[in-house]
């Protein structure tokens, strides 16, 4: 459903040019949960932002559902973005409006009439288990609850694709489990394809059907759970690549 082909992005920094993403080619299958793992600075968050063109690629193409995104005029791009949900490490909710208004904003932007909006907001909040918090403000919620509001907000416009940027990195282990559960549920129940960027091997092992390892702006390997290339298990140490491969070999042996 999503394919990135030879996509690159560099930034100008003080002492020259920093190549954040270097000619990455990636296929994300419909209905999959595709993890992108790597150390900080590997370019994974930039790669995620290239998918919905929050960052413009220097070269390469982004094809979503057969549509080349990079050539879309501003207005069509905005409409496409409305069908791509995104959640963040810092949740990025609007702090000055209530939980239900937060979920309502993407619907307002898409021009959904008020009555439908009210229904959809309720539906989304029920889905993430926060129907009772509709009238509260983000500051009154815990981190996990805020991330669930962000998920509800991302789901409001019935996206086919959900982009997750380190969604559990500022949460404790129990809350991480809770959020991973919600993401899995979204994937299984609503058929939403998920691309998730993380530096936590545990997240990949528990959630992902595919994983790509990123180093210095490049994707160095991609594994698929269906092919038995990596298995869910507690991880140990070593590089991300070794953790995935090493574990797999042990289990085969």
């Amino acid at each position: 459903m999503l394919s990135l082909s030879r996509i690159s992005k560099s930034f100008e920094v003080k002492d020259g040019v920093y190549q954040a993403v270097d000619s990455v080619t990636l296929e994300v299958e419909k209905g999959s949960i595709h993890g992108i793992i790597g150390a900080s600075g590997a370019g994974k968050s930039t790669l995620l932002r290239l998918i919905n063109l929050l960052e413009r690629p220097d070269e390469g193409s982004v094809i979503l559902n057969g549509r080349e995104m990079t050539v879309l005029p501003e207005k069509l791009l905005r409409q496409e973005r409305q069908k791509i949900g995104m959640i963040f490490q810092q949740f990025n909710l609007v702090a000055n409006v209530s939980v239900s208004r937060n979920v309502s904003i993407p619907l307002e932007l898409a021009g959904v009439p008020k009555r439908e909006r009210t229904e959809r907001v309720e539906e989304c909040l029920r889905f993430v288990g926060l129907a009772d918090k509709a009238g509260q403000y983000p500051a009154q919620l815990s981190g996990g609850q805020r991330q669930r509001v962000a998920i509800a907000r991302a789901l409001a416009n019935h996206p086919g694709l959900l982009l997750c940027d380190e969604p559990t990195s500022s949460l404790d282990p129990a809350t991480t489990t809770e959020i991973l559960g919600v993401l899995k549920h979204i994937n299984e129940k609503l058929g939403v394809t998920i691309v998730i960027v993380t530096h936590e091997m545990d997240v990949v092992k528990r959630l992902c059907s595919h994983v790509s390892v990123m180093e210095d702006g490049r994707i160095v390997d991609t594994f698929s759970r269906a092919d038995g290339e990596f298995l869910p298990a507690a991880s140990s140490s070593g590089s991300y690549r070794e953790q995935i491969l090493g574990k797999a070999r042990e289990d085969y042996a």
């Binding site: 919905n52 929050l54 791009l77 905005r78 409409q79 496409e80 973005r81 409305q82 791509i84 949900g85 995104m86 963040f88 810092q90 949740f91 990025n92 909710l93 609007v94 904003i105 993407p106 307002e108 932007l109 898409a110 907000r153 991302a154 416009n157 982009l163």
Partner: peptide, 17 residues
């Protein structure tokens, strides 16, 4: 915070939005 703008753009907000 920067993230607020990013969230807005990610959900397809126009400039006025």
């Amino acid at each position: 915070p920067r993230g607020t703008t990013e969230a807005a753009l990610s959900m397809g907000a126009s400039r006025l939005g």
